[in-house]
């Protein structure tokens, strides 16, 4: 009675499984196929074209009028920028998130609950609204811009529509994803370990680097995944704060399905984005396993 029969189990799991496979798995398979096809005149793809890797070649190379291949860095720069933005976002989130998580776990039970609530509220707020708020802060005729221009002696300062604006927006969007996993690791932290470190003669810095950070590592890794992955694939932040000048991969993909109507190229970009993501996930997982083996 306690063990559900395999048939009943299948019947319960199948509907959800089928929906996810049909609406996530199948589309991804179609996308991988489209990335090998040629663009179409009306709907963006020629379904019966012969498959080739031409779209992937286009990521870095450009065919000259006489048929020679020239290096075209436009798309490579966007890809590199996306990875760099995601990387710096993750680093900044660790630097800001670790102290916040530590501070939260040093609070009393009731204060902690409120701190968690304060960190969670922005996370529940619409992503568009959060990025739009920064658009207001950083806009040209805003108070921050006036102030920056007043103190900056070397010509006019442009705060919006550049990589820094995007970085600020990405950190703002994903910081809670870093704080909460680190904090939840520390919630069960045995603070006597820290007392033991002091008792054994460690100063605060040594206690931090030798006891606290190693123990926070699982949370930092989990948080890094939760921040890096959505940053790399983000669209909204660069669309609003990058103003179409500073693109990330998500924006480049969207362009192929919007104005450019070049689905196969957009599909190839998507496949590359997925591959980059897998690379990072596998790398982090391997690194974590090695860390785990050490302890």
């Amino acid at each position: 009675m306690s063990a559900a029969s395999p048939l009943r189990r299948m019947g319960l799991v199948a509907p959800a499984l089928v929906i996810v496979l049909a609406l996530v798995g199948v589309p991804l398979a179609i996308m991988a196929w489209v990335s090998l096809l040629e663009r179409g005149a009306t709907i963006g793809v020629t379904w019966d074209s012969a498959p080739s890797f031409a779209n992937y070649t286009r990521l870095a190379w450009e065919e000259d009028f006489d048929g020679t291949m020239l290096l075209n860095p436009t798309y490579l720069i966007i890809q590199l920028r996306s990875v760099a933005q995601a990387f710096f976002t993750t680093v900044l989130c660790v630097l800001l998130g670790l102290p916040v998580a530590l501070w939260m776990s040093s609070l009393s039970k009731n204060q902690r609950d409120i701190a968690v609530l304060l960190i969670t509220i922005p996370f529940w707020t619409n992503l568009l609204v959060r990025n739009y708020a920064w658009l207001i802060i950083l806009r040209e005729d805003g108070a921050v811009s006036h102030f920056a221009n007043a103190v900056w002696p070397f010509g006019p300062v442009q705060l919006l529509y550049n990589d820094t604006a995007i970085l600020i927006g990405l950190v703002y969007s994903f910081l809670p994803f870093m704080i909460l996993p680190i904090y939840s690791g520390f919630e069960k932290f045995d603070w006597r370990l820290l007392e033991a470190a002091y008792d054994l003669g460690a100063n605060r810095r040594q206690a931090l680097t030798r006891v606290v950070i190693p123990l926070a590592m699982p949370g930092i890794i989990a948080g890094s995944m939760l921040v890096f992955i959505p940053s790399l694939g983000s669209f909204v932040t660069a669309a609003i704060l990058g103003g179409g000048k500073s693109l990330m991969m998500g924006n480049l993909i969207q362009l192929q399905f919007g104005q450019s109507r070049n689905w196969p190229f957009g599909a190839a970009l998507s496949v590359v984005l997925l591959a980059l993501m897998m690379l990072v996930l596998v790398g982090l997982a391997l690194w974590r396993n090695r860390q785990g083996g050490k302890i």
Binding site: M31, I229, Q254, S270, L274, M277
Partner: peptide, 14 residues
């Protein structure tokens, strides 16, 4: 974990 922009355009194609 899948980037939403990728899943969205893939679903569009489907």
């Amino acid at each position: 974990i899948l980037p939403e922009v990728v899943v969205a355009v893939a679903t569009l194609m489907l």
